[in-house]
């Protein structure tokens, strides 16, 4: 398979505390990789690094062989714009839903975006709320709008941080269906951070476990759940306390 990201000796350190330590991880083009682990395991930190939003303290991330290291001040904009991230707690602009979805396209100077915006809104079921002010939306609607403003950009890589946390079953299903559609129809590479092992099992081709900042194991999802190689993985997927 075609390697899109190669992570080598990656460490992130905040205030002298190592919050992430991933010796080696490859992410393949066109796959859905789920990263599971308890709160505070370093999952969101890994996503921010994969989105090139913060520089690593040690090691490097090769994105199509282009290195992102502690010395990289900023990734080239053309590479950075191939990756988009949706945050666990999305913050929308004080504007309409449509304006929020158009935002990233405007940044890129793309003018002929009406049909793409409408399609993205339809994909997340927000087309009837296009004119609604973002500040009046519910949690699920904010999450769906944030997803629409990311997918409208048609990124090569979509990084999702707890995309369905605190959502009702209808919204969870809608977003999970969309994730699978994006992957199957457009070949989009997705990395999903979730503490929900069932969601990882439903969606991902491969699943990785992070515990206390350390990558414990990464395997194809079936093997990860049926015959994990590490006792801590087995304990985690069975809902036991692991550290």
């Amino acid at each position: 398979m075609d390697i899109l990201y190669r992570v080598e000796g990656l460490q992130q350190i905040y205030q002298n505390r190592t919050v992430l330590d991933v010796p080696e991880l490859d992410i393949y083009r066109g796959e859905i990789l789920a990263v599971v682990g308890p709160s505070g395991a370093g999952k969101s930190t890994l996503l921010r690094l994969l989105a090139f939003l913060e520089s690593p303290a040690r090691g490097q991330i090769l994105f199509e062989n282009y290195p992102f290291t502690p010395l990289t001040a900023e990734m080239p904009l053309s590479l950075r714009r191939r990756v988009t991230m949706v945050f666990q707690r999305p913050v929308l602009l004080h504007d309409s839903v449509r304006a929020n979805v158009m935002y990233g396209l405007r940044l890129r100077g793309e003018r002929d975006h009406h049909s793409r915006v409408e399609q993205a809104l339809r994909e997340v079921g927000m087309d009837r709320m296009a004119h609604v002010r973002a500040r009046t939306l519910s949690g699920g609607e904010i999450q769906r709008t944030a997803l629409a403003r990311a997918i409208v950009l048609q990124p090569e890589v979509l990084l999702l941080d707890e995309p369905t946390a605190n959502l009702d079953p209808y919204n969870v299903r809608l977003i999970e269906d969309l994730i699978q559609r994006l992957n199957r129809q457009y070949g989009m590479t997705l990395v999903i951070v979730t503490h929900n092992v069932f969601q990882a099992r439903r969606l991902a081709h491969r699943t990785a476990l992070l515990l206390d900042g350390k990558l414990i194991e990464v395997r194809d999802t079936h093997t990860f759940f049926e015959s994990p190689g590490d006792a801590r993985t087995r304990a985690f997927i069975h809902g036991e306390w692991v550290c």
Partner: peptide, 13 residues
């Protein structure tokens, strides 16, 4: 403060 990182994630300079 989260907005800045989020707009950067959408490709803002």
């Amino acid at each position: 403060p989260a907005l800045r990182l989020q707009v950067m994630a959408l490709g803002a300079t």
